[in-house]
C-alpha cells in the first residue's frame, strides 16, 4: 500500500508518504494534533485528502472499516448496535457464525450481561468496547482503529487488546491503529509509525522506538508519556 496523503485545513495537518505492507498491525503514535486521526479519516474516505495526494490501497471502500475515536451510539440495544457491523449480504450461515463471535467477544470483554440494554445508557468505556466488537465481528481487508481503548480502564484495555490479537490471528487482515500508548503499540503492533506535525518522523518496531529513539521529537514525546 503506497500512501501519499496530504490534508490542509487552515494549515497543513497531514503530509505523509509511506509504503505499508499488508497483513500487519501498524500503530500510529504521536501527540494530540500530530495527524493520526486525520490519516485514518483520509484512508477511510471520511474526509477527502488534498488533490495532490495519491492513496494506492488495493481494496474497495467497503473492505475498509474505520472505528472513530468517538463512535456514534445508536438508540438500539448493545447487540443490535454491534449487528450493524454485519454486512446485509451475508448468508444465514455467516450470520450465525457472526452471532457466535459477538457472544464470545461480549463475554471476553465483560459486556455480555449488558447485551440487551439500550446502548445510549452505557458509559464511555462500555460504548468503546461495543464499537470495538462491532469493528471486529467480520473480516476487513483494512481495519482502521482510532484510539480504540482510550476510554477504557487498564483491565478492559488488556481484554480489548486480546480481542484485536485474536481477530488478527483469525482473519489476518491489515490493521492500522492510532494510540497514545507506546506500551500498547509494543503489545500489539508489528510496526510503529511516529507522527509529528502531520509527518511521519520515524518507522520502526516498538522496542527500537523505546531503546533507540532517533529524532528529538520522538525523544521528547517518549519523555512526556
Amino acid at each position: 500500500m503506497k500512501i501519499v496523503a496530504k490534508k490542509t485545513f487552515d494549515r497543513k495537518v497531514l503530509d505523509v508518504d509511506v509504503q505499508l505492507e499488508e497483513h500487519k498491525i501498524y500503530a500510529l503514535i504521536g501527540a494530540n494534533g500530530s495527524g493520526k486521526s486525520t490519516l485514518l479519516k483520509v484512508l477511510s474516505s471520511v474526509i477527502n485528502p488534498d488533490t495532490d495526494s495519491s492513496i494506492d490501497i488495493p481494496f474497495k471502500n467497503d473492505e475498509v472499516y474505520y472505528m472513530p475515536q468517538m463512535p456514534y451510539t445508536f438508540d438500539l440495544s448493545v447487540y443490535n448496535n454491534i449487528k450493524l457491523g454485519i454486512p446485509l449480504k451475508y448468508s444465514t450461515g455467516e450470520k450465525i457464525y457472526c452471532k457466535y463471535r459477538i457472544d464470545t467477544m461480549l463475554k471476553t470483554i465483560d459486556l455480555y450481561q449488558l447485551r440487551k440494554a439500550n446502548a445510549q445508557t452505557l458509559s464511555g468505556g462500555e460504548r468503546q468496547k461495543m464499537a470495538l466488537i462491532r469493528s471486529l465481528v467480520v473480516r476487513h481487508n483494512l481495519l482502521l482503529l482510532d484510539e480504540p481503548t482510550s476510554a477504557m480502564d487498564i483491565n478492559a484495555t488488556l481484554k480489548a487488546e486480546e480481542l484485536i490479537i485474536k481477530y488478527k490471528e483469525e482473519f489476518d487482515g491489515t490493521i492500522i491503529m492510532a494510540t497514545h500508548s507506546i506500551k500498547q503499540a509494543q503489545r500489539l503492533a508489528d510496526v510503529v509509525l511516529f507522527l509529528d506535525n502531520g509527518e511521519i518522523k520515524e518507522i520502526a518496531d516498538a522496542q527500537t522506538f523505546i531503546d533507540h529513539p532517533q529524532s528529538d521529537e520522538l525523544k521528547d514525546f517518549l519523555q512526556k508519556i
Binding site: S44, Y65, P68, P71, Y72, L84, G85, A131
Partner: peptide, 19 residues
C-alpha cells in the same frame, strides 16, 4: 455525529436513512 460512524461501518443509504 453519525457521519464518521456511518462511513466507517460502511452503512448503505437505506440503512442509514432508517437509522
Amino acid at each position: 455525529a453519525l457521519l464518521e460512524t456511518r462511513r466507517g461501518i460502511g452503512l448503505g443509504s437505506t440503512r442509514t436513512f432508517l437509522l
